[in-house]
Amino acid sequence: MLEVKNLGFSRGRNVLFEALNFSVVSNSAMRVTGSNGSGKTTLLRLLAGLSRPDQGMVYWGGESVIKNYSDFVKSINFIGHDDGLKKQLTAAENLKLMLPLLGVSPSNQEVDSALDAAGLEYVKNRPVMHMSAGQKRRVTLTRLDFMSHRALWILDEPFTSLDVAAISSLVEKLKNHIESGGLLVFTTHQSFDVIPQATSLVLD
């Protein structure tokens, strides 16, 4: 269970949020919404332990995520705003060099077939700089296939720049994850409820 107790964070003089309390349990999802600059990305980075809160703490299984960071990080899947793709390398090279760092070492074949399944068959061996924003997003999202066993998925704007087909396949993946006992926290600008069972957290 992911628990947030009395969380507070301010950037300079700007208080983003104060005394925030919520929890996300297995088999459920939470959608974070709010206007630009309301702190959605910051909240997700706090949940992933990348930033330290000014007040309060984030707990995973009852333990502070900062204190037990190297264990905590092995049970999350964080996909942030920046994709971490190197534009000089191809999609396949990027994944093959990025994934061992995140704890999985797939074979070349596995990487290739995951990219094929994401509809990137014809571009996977091109440098990433020649790809469109949507294609890059797809490359990034294939990380979920390799790390689907991790319980907590924290996704920042996962649907951005994706076309209709890619959105529905991602929604399918997310629903599967929730149904098989996972937890999901995500932000989105999408006005419709892509994941109907998700509870909603509005930041203002």
């Binding site: 990348l50 264990d71 092995k74 964080f78 920046d82 971490g84 760092l101 995140l102 704890g103």
Partner: peptide, 22 residues
Amino acid sequence: ESDFSDGSLEHLVLSGEPLSIL
């Protein structure tokens, strides 16, 4: 610098390995 701007620096932290070694 480029790792910072494209987000790959985050991956070093998210790896859970000691950052000083990486």
